[in-house]
Design a protein around this nucleic acid. Structure first.
Length: 656
DNA sequence: CGGGACAACGTTTTT
DNA sequence: CGTTGTCCCG
């Protein structure tokens, strides 16, 4: 092994620079970009050039002689990291490829695979998505005999939620139940029993859910000083984007890696904290200077995105927050047109209005791809989607429905999971239950046999010839044998499994042609990966966001309207933005009605939505709403009610 | 024991 | 509306 020493260069005293930083950045941005060593917090208002600042900082560090591999850029999605590094590459070249970047979860996953044995795992552990975890919880609940209907016991979804909240907020499960689920307080004992069994189950089968990735990384760093020190040396510059949406565990990871003399820069905006359901709290960002004593605070308040009219409305909205850390957005851009509030008779007319306005905007020269429709929840756009199809307006939708969660995709992926991690009992169960004449009982029997055998096919062997299952188990055994224990090529693996799966899909699904077509696309996606392990990790941590056919389409129409949940629109911007369903019960959602904190978060959601617009902002809501209980009168969202006409102009629309 | 048929339920946001 | 759970037949 070759040894060599890295030369450290102090960025403050670095040599001459090729990039004209002073020209490209304002004063505060420049001080963030050229910030020397130690901890720093950048409070960046919406549209204040936060991404630009991070991009230039990465470039500056590299230009100063910092080794790209010693920079860690933690972002909210991996796509965000990729885009920032691409932009940095345009400044300093391809060395940015060596920068470590990604989400906390993807970073944790790679470190944990590197040091798996130190946390009692094998490097090929499987990552469970939400539904997988719930399946295990259900299984355990059944085993503990907690299925009888007489006692009102929480659903598996609720149980999973309780556990996850406890982990992400670093509070005991009993506390979460007491606080938020008092009606289940009498079941606390049983829930703790399930939690213990769930934890044990995951360990025994080499499984980690999303939360475990963070928990195990924290544990690894806390308990192994050697590893912690090695990683601290490896990542000398840590940049954390969207810090307002990190939770206690993530903050702990940053603290462990960058505490002391570390160079940590956290960037975020407390007004845009919208992920409390994931354990994030906007106060985390305010606590940063406490966690990192001596941290310098840099504020970015000049907005480069929106017209002053849009910022005026945004400022009025956020001014209604009970708790806020005042930040008034301003811009040198002109006044622009007033944001509009448009009440419409009902949902179909809301859809027609939005579609019509979009066509008008396109006539005026705004490309479809620079227009976005935002909403609180995925289903809010269903009616609009029908209208858009009717009018042949092409669109993509972000957020809401995930095709990784569709049964057929999960079926194929389960087979691969089993090949990679033969102890993955969740995957195995899914695989076996697909075989004809195998039900819960038989599945358990076969799983027992497989888990105690050295190889899957050996475990299956006793059942392969069993006439009870016809050819089923035999076919499964053969396809697994042809793939087992080999260095698998992801695309080839998917294709071979697809061959095996086709008759199963035909038997189980009436709409199999569509589903099989989806799976062909999955094979195409798989081609991009060198190993099945990285394919699986990506499918779990960064599942493709569009529908499969959108991603792999030969000629993806770049001229497409964007539909998005507000959550998925974080950090993005468009020329014209529509916020639909701005009605009481929708934004804010009824679920938030109970808690003042939750209502505040809904308010911030409205703020995030409004600040996505550069030139045009149109807010709509239907007056007559059909709920499952019958028709009701929609009231405008309290967040945009009683705002002066000089800030938010009400339109009345007449339909011909 | 498996699986089809039928009923009931409840509907946010995401790594 | 589409999923999840229950019942009952083969």
């Amino acid at each position: 092994m070759k040894k060599y020493t890295l030369k450290r260069t102090d960025p403050e005293h670095a040599p001459s620079y090729l990039i004209p930083y002073e020209k490209e950045l304002n004063e505060n941005q420049l001080s963030a970009v050229t910030f020397g060593s130690g901890p720093s917090l950048v409070i960046a208002g919406a549209g204040s050039g936060k991404t630009r600042t991070l991009v230039y900082r990465v470039a500056r560090l590299i230009e100063s002689g910092v080794s790209p591999a010693s920079i860690l850029l933690l972002t909210f999605t991996r796509k965000a990291a990729r885009q920032m590094l691409d932009r940095a590459a345009a400044l300093v070249g391809t060395q940015t490829e060596k920068v470590a970047g990604g989400t906390f979860h993807s970073f944790s996953s790679s470190i944990l695979r590197e040091y798996a044995s130190a946390v009692g795992f094998s490097a090929s552990f499987t990552i469970l998505d939400r539904a997988d975890g719930e399946d295990i919880i259900n299984l355990i609940r059944g085993r503990l005999g907690l299925t009888d209907r007489e006692r009102r016991f929480p659903k598996k979804e609720t149980i999973g939620e309780i556990f996850s909240k406890a982990v992400n907020r670093a509070v005991p499960v009993a506390g979460v139940i007491e606080q938020e689920y008092p009606h289940f307080a009498h079941e606390t004992e049983k829930l703790l029993e399930i939690l213990a069994a769930y934890t044990e189950y995951k360990q025994a089968h080499m499984l980690m859910d999303y939360d475990d990735l963070l928990v195990h990384l924290v544990r690894l760093l806390e308990k192994n000083e050697g590893i912690r020190e090695a990683l601290k040396k490896r990542y000398r510059y840590i940049l954390v984007d969207e810090y307002q949406d990190t939770n206690g565990l993530q903050a702990r990871i940053v603290e462990l890696l960058g505490g002391g003399a570390g160079n940590v820069m956290a960037v975020g905006d407390d007004s845009q904290s919208i992920y409390s359901f994931r354990g994030a709290h906007f106060k985390n960002i305010m606590d940063f200077p406490t966690l990192f004593p001596g941290a310098s605070v840099i504020k970015l308040e000049e907005n480069y995105r929106s017209t002053q009219s849009i910022l005026n409305l945004a400022n009025v909205i956020i001014d209604r927050a009970r708790e806020k850390y005042t930040k008034i957005l301003w811009t040198k851009k002109g006044t622009g047109t007033l944001p509009a509030l448009v009440p419409l008779p009902d949902e179909p007319s809301q859809s027609r209005f939005v579609a019509q306005r979009i066509l008008d905007l396109r006539e005026e020269g705004v490309p479809l791809s620079d227009i976005c429709v935002l909403f609180r929840a995925g289903f809010n756009s269903f009616d609009l989607e029908i209208e858009l199809k009717k009018r042949n307006i092409p669109f993509v939708k972000h957020g809401g429905f995930k095709f990784m969660e569709t049964a057929h995709v999960k079926d194929i992926v389960a087979h691969i999971k089993v090949l990679v991690n033969p102890r993955d009992a969740v995957g195995l169960k899914r695989v076996l239950m697909l075989v004809e004449n195998v039900g819960p009982r038989t599945e358990e029997e076969i799983t027992g046999s497989v888990l105690s055998a050295p190889r899957i096919t050996e475990g299956l062997a006793p059942f392969a010839g069993d006439r009870r299952f016809g050819e089923g188990i035999g076919r499964l055994s053969r396809v697994l044998a042809s793939l087992e224990g080999r260095d698998l090529n992801p695309a080839e693996t998917v294709e071979r499994l697809l061959e095996y799966y086709t008759p199963i899909a035909k038997r189980r699904y009436d709409d199999h042609p569509k589903r099989l077509e989806d799976l062909e696309h999955l094979a195409i996606i798989a081609r991009k990966y060198r190993s099945v392990e990285s394919f699986l990790t990506d499918m779990a941590l960064e599942p493709p966001s569009d529908s499969i056919s959108d991603i792999t389409r030969e000629d993806p129409d770049p001229e497409r309207l964007i539909l998005s949940t507000i959550h998925s629109a974080k950090g993005l911007e468009w020329h014209s933005v529509f916020i639909i369903w701005a009605a009481e019960g929708y934004l804010p959602t009824t679920y938030a009605a109970e808690s003042a904190d939750d209502l505040e978060e809904e308010l911030r959601l409205m703020y995030v939505a409004a600040t996505r617009a550069k030139e045009n902002l149109t807010i709509t809501f239907p007056i007559k709403i059909i709920t499952h209980r019958g028709p009701a009168f929609g009231r405008p969202s309290r967040f945009i009610e009683d705002i002066g006409e000089d800030v938010l102009e009400t339109w009345s629309v007449e339909e011909e």
